[in-house]
């Protein structure tokens, strides 16, 4: 999570207008959805990689990111390719395999274009985009709050896990469970103080106020 977030605000495109980046990445996404074909996949993946590379994001990170959905896609398309015909006899034909392949291609290509967008666009810009798209303001406010709180909770999580590790705790599920409970209770304890901060600053309405650079227009 932190890796993606840091990559986004350290990328060369971090200050570029989010609408311009969306105008490049989202058409690629829709293209791969509509044109479900290996050739389209190839084209989109190459384009997306170039965009990511141009944006100064490590290609290794990008490839590593793409490998994860690749595994999920394979697991997901198996039931499409094969179907049960009677008890314990598996059946597949040309059409169903064809469908599995196109689905896998479409999924991979659209993941590639979505990740290209995520890796070059800090989340704050996505919030701004939502505002431009006239999404309801309450929704945007909550999203902005959740974004900030996620990182605070994540910091806490890292600290609790570290504290347990240092005292010979064994890494694993129990440690995570203990951390979850502690984060929850300690956050509840802080609620009062946070509400005070909100009162002091006059409310919790999110008002977007950032300015961006452009790919083509020179800065004034």
């Amino acid at each position: 999570m932190n890796v993606l977030n840091r990559a986004a605000y350290n990328s060369r495109f971090a200050r570029i207008h989010p609408a311009e980046k969306a105008a490049i990445c989202l058409p690629m996404l829709f293209l791969s959805l509509i044109w479900r074909d290996p050739a389209a996949t190839f084209f989109v993946v190459i384009m997306a990689s170039m965009f990511v590379f141009w944006g100064g994001v490590s290609l290794i990170l990008y490839i590593r990111l793409l490998l994860a959905p690749a595994a999920f896609i394979l697991a997901g398309v198996l039931p499409i390719a094969f179907s049960f015909e009677g008890w314990l006899s598996i059946y597949a034909n040309k059409e169903s395999i064809q469908e599995a392949v196109t689905t896998a291609c479409a999924a991979f290509a659209s993941a590639a274009s979505l990740y290209a967008f995520i890796l070059t666009t800090p989340f704050t810009q996505i919030i701004w985009l939502m505002n431009v798209c006239k999404l309801p303001s309450l929704f945007i406010e909550i999203v902005a709050l959740v974004y900030r709180f996620i990182f605070q909770l994540w910091e806490k999580k890292s600290e609790v896990i570290m504290a347990q590790t240092l005292r010979s705790g064994r890494p694993g599920i129990q440690m995570a469970a203990r951390a979850a409970v502690h984060i929850f209770t300690s956050t509840l304890m802080e609620m009062n103080e946070r509400q005070h901060a909100v009162d002091l600053r006059g409310g919790l309405d999110y008002i977007p106020s950032s300015e961006w650079q452009s790919f083509w227009r020179k800065k004034k």
Partner: peptide
């Protein structure tokens, strides 16, 4: 590592997250 940490104790800066 376990043996090492048994011999070297680390108290982090923020006690809130350490007392779980």
């Amino acid at each position: 590592l376990q043996k090492w940490r048994r011999r070297i104790g680390f108290v982090m800066q923020n006690p809130d997250m350490q007392l779980f």
